[in-house]
Design a protein around this nucleic acid. Structure first.
Lengths: 202, 202
DNA sequence: TTCAAAGCGGAATACACGCTCCGTCTGCGT
DNA sequence: ACGCAGACGGAGCGTGTATTCCGCTTTGAA
């Protein structure tokens, strides 16, 4: 590949991350091209269509996600689970507009995040055994927290970019072992449901 | 106003509630017109533009919201606050697509919901004094819960229409008085921030 | 019953966006 | 230096959607 072509591809990716991050994935391709100081034609030379460009960006984030799950193992004691949730919050709060689609997958991409989910489930179990998390919490409850944090990030980022931290703190408080608190009355999502949801949203 | 015109206006409103509720406010006006068994022209005779139609629907919901806050007063003891949160969850889960904009306002509409917010703040204080809610929770924390529940509703409704209940339960658990749980490390949104956010989202 | 005002339908318009096409330009192997 | 495969830009096409326009229909007061 020609040298300038390689450079341009990179510029487009960076620009797309910025533009989509700031204005959401609904931002027009024209804006991405302008931000990359490149014609739209060039964008389409490197990515067959808008979805492919978005996928490329999100793919990179998914890999970060898996890396984070790996890194969590080296956290002390039963803290790994909570550490991971905060890290994922960080990830979601950077260039948050891109990530509207982070938790959606075609069946094909499901594998990459399955890995993440498996590790997350293990960390959750560990945390429960360490007595830091209530035993009736399930991995699907954690998915709901991710969705919820994503939305709080989206809504608050322009005014209070750190507000999601408090929201997450409160949710973690909700996950603590029930003292005198009542047990949960509503059942968690089943895995099958969670899976269908993640496919449907996209 | 002519009799048939009155009827048609009503039909359009009902249809819009259904269509926007099911497919979100991005659903095309044509679909609304079809669902109302009416031409697009008629829709535009009654509402100057799409936004006005949406506003009308949301306005009605806001009034319901205020009514709920009033009704909460007749709930027993310190439970009024929690009861209200569940009711708001219900409200958000019905025709949820319409409500993407429920918490956004132009400065002008701020007044209508201010009333709601004032009552909510009082109920929160009551619940705190009754020892059911941690004393460091603020009304802006409750706003974040509303945003969060709205998103969980949006994501899960087609597969598990009741999933939001569990999510809310967990959040309420997070609002219980801290036993051995650590105090919150991150500050709540200020009122001014919350206000700006609600204006910016729209 | 009559008829003008009010209402209606839906084709046509305006516009925004994804994407394609093609004439022009440029890195780089020779 | 040369030539051209490969890359570039951006005008223009197709589509989808909000909104308008206008000839036809209906209502209801006289």
């Amino acid at each position: 590949m020609r040298q300038d072509a390689v450079q341009n591809r990179e510029r487009v990716l960076t620009a797309a991350e910025e533009v989509f991050g700031a204005h959401g994935v609904d931002a027009p391709m024209n804006e991405v091209a302008d931000a990359a100081r490149v014609g739209v034609g060039t964008v389409y030379r490197h990515f067959p269509n808008k979805q492919a460009l978005i996928d490329e960006i999100i793919g990179a984030r998914r890999r970060q996600l898996v890396a984070l799950a790996d890194a969590a193992d080296s956290q002390p004691g039963g803290m790994a689970f909570e550490w991971l949730l905060v890290q994922v919050g960080h990830l979601q709060s950077e260039q948050s507009g891109c990530l509207e689609r982070l938790w959606d997958h075609s069946e094909a991409e499901l594998a990459s995040l399955d890995d993440f989910r498996r590790r997350l489930a293990m960390l959750l179990t560990d945390a429960q055994q360490a007595g830091r998390i209530r035993t009736d919490a399930t991995p699907t409850d954690v998915s709901m927290i991710f969705w919820s944090v994503r939305e709080v990030v989206r809504v608050t980022r322009s005014v209070a970019p750190n507000a999601w931290r408090r929201h997450l703190e409160l949710q973690l408080a909700g996950l603590r072992p029930a003292g005198d608190a009542a047990p949960l009355n509503h059942p968690p999502l089943t895995d099958a449901q969670a899976r269908r949801i993640m496919r449907a949203t996209s």
